[in-house]
Design a binder for these strands. Structure first.
Lengths: 354, 354
DNA sequence: CGGTTCTTGATAGACGTATGTCAGGAATCG
DNA sequence: CGATTCCTGACATACGTCTATCAAGAACCG
């Protein structure tokens, strides 16, 4: 088993041309006759030549300057994602990838716009940002892309074709999956479901709910939707009231955040007869604990580890003006208490009650 | 934002020593005073120096020669895995990784031993192999590792500490997960479950079954276990007979392969009253079709894509005498009909009926 | 035919690291 | 004090690719 791979010099020798000519062919430079180009290409095939990217990057002093912009705040899911990005950043330096992770006040389009502008000024080779439909943001992103900076939508997609790639889950699929699991968990019986979302106008929550309804269709009754604004106190109060008022509820589907509040309600009701089937999103400290404690049944997780890995992969490819390979959406993972991964979260307290 | 990262020369300059001395420190060579070593290390910290692996590999003409040995035969899961390895091999060449994928007759320890020996002779930097407890195989693997060739267990673990790493799922966890989903799907009602395995003596099937029992515990009755030897005809005949003889069966858990036979039985029974809840393993062509057709409910998949990626990552690290980073087991994915990934299998016919 | 354009080869320096050799100086030992 | 060992610096070469420059020859045009 030979110890070395063919180099471009080998190719040139085999093609009967000089290194310079072979180089002109592989780097698509002008000034090569068809005949010469042809024989170089043939030699490449015959030898199975593959460019040594390490050498190429070395000679060009390539340094990938990437940035990820995440919404700041207490949301446990984004905190987790931030940690994952941070942990990646170190390891990436080995591969000449410098990743900056930046926080921007959530729901503040102007702050986000300013931050993106600053990144554009600073010189970056690619940006990942959580999608938002605000015109300020969309406009800035268009401008960045026009300047040649690739922009990737993360977790939540950007409207239209205003991004080079999207890394995240398909929220309609996620909602459908939740619906199927809810139907399965009712063992063929009719039930009454309480849906909980952040706001019905948020596109991701709306998609999840739509997918959910699609599947539970005629098989379930649906209680009035609770809008908890992703705030645990609000969720807690409203869910408690709803369960009080409507004892026929057999299932809860929470499509948004603020689930620490939901879990507190469930904690308070242990012993009060059979509890409803509960399905919610994102494996974070509090949802994990609730699953382990048997307070809830299923957590659908969008696998931020995989998302982070894909983001970096895609940004690097985009920075090289290549097209990202894997463009199909992330397949979310379904957790029950038995298949929880080993706990690596450390001391993340989750969404803390005030 | 500066365009370049500090080099070892920068470190040497800052530490007030020569490049040679700095090099002696980072490459742990002898002949450096503590004082000098200390100041180099400090300069490294201050500058945030990270060795340029591309340049290092280039200077050493590093070529990773890896091999994966898979059981040949008609098993759809391993066919899928083989394809995934093959597809990776091409892309890996770019990173100076040459991956050979080899088939060896399944259940033939001598053939496997010979193949492993040959690979050892041929000179490889790392081998991934599907674990087996046969003494011939275990002995050869010990010998390889003694020679300094890292060996990684794939899908099925190796006994004792006879491998450098294991990439695969925890089968007990998988069985427990199946149990939980079976209980959930019965909506709190008692049921009667038909378990199907290849053989009860295969460690992975035994683990799955044990985990399954652990969770369904007292909540379910259990029909006599069917041993289908992973052959679809055998499975088909026995499952058909069992369902005929025992109309009270409300769930089927198939822990092994040969599920094309199981699916054919279910196809034949459409319309014959409510069908049992069916949970089985590995998303391949036939299980996918059955899920889409509503013949089965849940497929638990061990994510061979992720396994392949992890194998390569781990082998590379082992070849560099580094310790693999992610050693926690693969988290299997749970599929229902609603969250199936886009079909990329091409024309794989699955386990074809004779 | 003279001039222009196109094609090709030769060559050299750079990227950052690994690895070697050699020589000079300091410290240590007998 | 002389001999030995230890530490250090100075160079040199190689890895494969990119990029640039220069010159020579071929092919073409008017």
């Amino acid at each position: 088993m030979d110890r070395r791979l063919p180099t471009l010099s080998d190719v040139a020798r085999r093609a009967g041309v000089s290194y310079a000519t072979a180089d002109r062919v592989v780097n698509a430079r002008t000034g090569v006759s068809d005949r010469a180009a042809q024989s170089v290409r043939q030699a490449i095939d015959e030898l199975g030549y593959v460019r040594n990217v390490a050498a190429a990057n070395l000679s060009q002093q390539r340094l990938y300057r990437l940035a990820a912009v995440l919404p700041a705040g207490s949301n446990a899911f984004f905190r987790r994602m931030r940690d994952l990005f941070g942990a990646s950043a170190e390891r990436l330096l080995v591969d000449r990838i410098r990743l900056r992770v930046e926080d921007v006040e959530a729901f503040d389009p102007c702050a986000l716009r300013d931050r993106l502008d600053a990144l554009g000024q600073d010189g970056v080779d690619g940006i990942a940002v959580v999608g938002s439909a605000d015109p300020e943001v969309v406009g800035t992103i268009s401008a960045l892309r026009a300047k040649g900076v690739p922009v990737l939508a993360l977790v939540s997609d950007l409207p239209g074709a205003e991004r080079d790639a999207y890394v995240g889950i398909d929220n309609t699929v996620v909602g459908r999956t939740a619906g199927r699991l809810m139907v399965l968990s009712h063992g063929g019986r009719r039930g009454r479901i309480l849906p909980v979302v952040g706001t019905r106008t948020a596109p991701d929550h709306a998609d999840r709910l739509a997918g959910f309804y699609e599947v539970i269709g005629g098989a379930m009754d649906i209680a009035p939707v609770i809008e908890g604004r992703d705030q645990h106190e609000l969720v807690e109060r409203q869910v408690a009231a709803a369960l009080e008022a409507d004892p026929a509820i057999t299932g809860i589907y929470s499509a948004g955040a603020g689930n620490a509040g939901l879990i507190r309600v469930l904690e308070g009701r242990t012993g009060a007869g059979p509890r409803p089937i509960v399905i919610l999103h994102e494996l974070v400290a509090h949802s994990r604990r609730a699953l382990e404690a048997g307070l809830i049944d299923i957590v659908i997780d969008q696998r931020p580890e995989e998302e982070v890995a894909r983001v970096i992969e895609a940004l690097r490819l985009l920075a090289d003006r290549r097209t990202p390979a894997a463009t199909d959406p992330i397949v979310p993972t379904i957790y029950v208490r038995e298949n929880l991964p080993p706990d690596t979260s450390g001391a993340d307290p989750g969404e803390v009650a005030p």
